[in-house]
């Protein structure tokens, strides 16, 4: 425990104070500003909805729209965080965790101190997770603050809780990328190799995976209804293999209570065979909907962690 806390403190300070930390926080700041000013027309959309909605009394969850509204030709804050920010931060925090210590000769000095070996690994992982949580919290607070001054509507308690949930789940999702990057840092001796490996996996899921599925099971108007439905089903199932898509579904359901998971929309469409228009889900139902996703994300993260932990513990310190 003693060793774990010492390693944790040092690594956390390292993450927050080093150039790496400063650059990451700059990135966070940019993302926040982008979320408010970036999607052109987004704010106008929200304002428009606000005035239109108040006429009909349906201004529910207007504050959350700050995070989910996309502008013309640019993604929403949510998409940006899911696809870019969290994976990049996770990979940046973890890609050199073990191999850089091996290469610089600090690891053997560290391991010759009276601490358990896993204290080093766990301490680093924990420090990464906490850094991730701090970043997500600051970005949510920044966007909330900026947004509040722009639209003038404060968040309701449920909205605040949903944002809090987003931070928690975002941290878990971040732990997934952190764990992956650390896995490569245990397996590859070269720091460059582990960066490339992590980035390849990220790019694969962020960009190529969706395109690949689209090619395998295309969705277009020319298909017969049967084929169309089959392909939608295939796409939904296949997308579930991607952590990016998984988390995207989770956060969409949390931050846009009117949304459903793709599968549900599909089922509802099949059942009613008409365009389905849904109302907002209460928080409990939201959680119920995304529970499997969350468990899966935690599960894969645990697998990464276990593999790298095992490898790190079994790795023999050798004379070179």
């Amino acid at each position: 425990m003693r060793g774990l806390l010492t390693v944790f403190n040092k690594e956390l300070a390292d993450y927050l104070i080093s150039w790496r930390g400063i650059i990451l926080f700059g990135f966070v700041l940019l993302t926040a500003v982008f979320a408010i000013y970036g999607p052109s027309g987004a704010l106008q959309n929200i304002r428009g909805e606000l005035s239109a909605g108040s006429q009909f009394g349906t201004t529910q969850f207007i504050f959350l729209k700050l995070f989910t509204t996309s502008g013309e030709g640019s993604p929403s804050f949510l998409t940006f965080v899911t696809v870019f920010l969290v994976p990049i931060v996770g990979i940046t925090l973890g890609f050199d965790a073990i191999n850089s210590e091996k290469n610089s000769g600090t690891l053997s000095r560290l391991l010759s101190q009276p601490i358990y070996r896993d204290a080093v690994f766990n301490g680093k992982f924990l420090a990464g997770i906490v850094t991730m949580a701090i970043m997500l919290t600051s970005i949510i607070l920044l966007v909330s603050g900026l947004g509040l001054s722009m639209i003038g509507v404060p968040p309701s308690s449920e909205e605040a809780f949903r944002l809090f949930l987003f931070i928690v789940l975002g941290t878990i999702y971040g732990a997934f990328w952190l764990g992956l990057a650390m896995l490569f840092s245990v397996f590859f001796r070269g720091v460059a190799t582990s960066v490339i490996a992590s980035i390849s996996i990220w790019l694969f899921f962020a960009i190529f995976f969706g395109a690949m599925i689209n090619t395998l099971a295309p969705i277009s108007q020319t298909l017969s209804q049967q084929e169309y439905l089959r392909n939608v089903g295939v796409q939904i199932t296949a997308l579930r293999a991607s952590p990016v898509a998984l988390f995207q579904e989770v956060t969409t359901v949390i931050l846009a209570p009117g949304a459903r998971t793709a599968a549900e929309t599909w089922q509802l469409q099949q059942a009613s065979s008409s365009q389905f228009v849904g109302g907002s889900l209460p928080l409990g139902q939201t959680l119920l909907t995304i529970w499997p996703h969350i468990v899966t994300l935690i599960g894969i993260t645990a697998v990464w962690f276990a593999i790298s932990y095992y490898k790190f513990m079994r790795d023999e310190i050798r004379a070179t």
Binding site: S18, S104, G105, T106, S108, R109, S112, P114, T320
Partner: peptide, 16 residues
């Protein structure tokens, strides 16, 4: 380890 001091061959410190 608590009673032994060890200086490895390629000793390294945190450079930053």
């Amino acid at each position: 380890k608590s009673i032994t001091g060890y200086v490895p061959e390629k000793v390294g410190f945190y450079e930053n």
